[in-house]
């Protein structure tokens, strides 16, 4: 376990090297909140609620879901895995006495922890300075459920992007898989077509996919909504994680045989 904590620490430290990047990260977070503040402020000017959301709850949802989305850095890691396989640099991980999946997960966690700490500081400062009426549940069980969902969701995204990354053993170029994944995620989470426009049956089917529970549900839980879905979400995400765990282990074992380690 200590080797993975140290890996996360090393990646955290690596992020701290670029001071300008840190500044930009903070500025980006603040500007996003500012934009949401202005945009939703205009929408809520003449009405108290929109689709059951009050202005503070909408802003809180936006801040929380942006956070969770930003915490997921696994797509970059998946791309890095594919690039390292293509260039032959992946060999350096193969010869290390550790689990390659958990190494990359720890690496991603290090980057996420960096973003979490600086973004959190920036957001808290913003909320405090502008006295944003931040809506958050006080129910400990719900907060705990949301945190479990966030962790399971990040792990699931890591597993999926790791899977796409190791496909480079066979296909070399995995960008098409990433593109398909991005489109599926957009569709299932409703960012391509609002879920409300789809037949109820299809929406129910989509709830069996993990993406609904990765950022949407935990954000809703934290602002005090959809509590009844928490348990189902945890079970579904745990099942998807288990399935991808098995798939990744089998795929790695099978595809690693095709690795030539070209370039060394």
């Amino acid at each position: 376990m200590r080797k993975y904590i140290e890996t996360a620490k090393v990646l955290f430290k690596a992020q701290l090297v670029y001071h300008f990047d840190i500044l930009l990260t903070v500025v980006f977070t603040i500007s996003k909140i500012l934009l949401a503040h202005v945009l939703w402020g205009a929408i809520f000017e003449n009405q108290d609620t929109v689709s059951g959301f009050t202005y503070p709850s909408m802003l809180s949802y936006y801040i929380i879901s942006s956070f969770i989305t930003q915490l997921d850095q696994s797509a970059g890691t998946g791309g890095q895995i594919a690039a390292e396989i293509r260039s032959g640099r992946f060999s350096k991980y193969i010869v290390k006495p550790m689990s390659i999946f958990w190494y990359f997960t720890a690496q991603t966690a290090g980057v996420s922890a960096f973003l979490l700490s600086f973004n959190l500081l920036a957001a808290l400062a913003w909320i405090f300075i502008f006295r944003v009426d931040f809506t958050i549940t006080v129910d400990i069980a719900v907060i705990l459920s949301a945190l479990i969902l966030i962790l399971l969701g990040l792990l699931f995204m890591m597993q999926m992007n790791y899977y796409i990354g190791i496909l480079a053993f066979k296909f070399l170029d995995t960008s098409v898989f990433s593109m398909i994944k991005d489109n599926v995620v957009r569709f299932v989470t409703g960012s391509l077509i609002p879920l409300a426009l789809l037949p109820a049956g299809i929406v129910e089917i989509m709830r069996l996919f993990p993406f609904y529970y990765v950022s949407y549900l935990p954000s809703m839980l934290l602002i005090g909504k959809n509590e009844s879905e928490a348990l189902a979400g945890i079970i579904i995400l745990a099942c998807w994680n288990a399935a991808f765990g098995i798939l990744n282990a089998a795929t790695y074992k099978n595809l690693k045989m095709k690795y030539d380690g070209v370039g060394i």
């Binding site: 080797k3 904590i5 140290e6 890996t7 090393v10 006495p97 550790m98």
Partner: peptide, 11 residues
């Protein structure tokens, strides 16, 4: 920093 990581990786 890398040496510290290797210390943990190799126990």
């Amino acid at each position: 920093d890398t040496f510290l990581l290797l210390k943990e990786i190799y126990d």
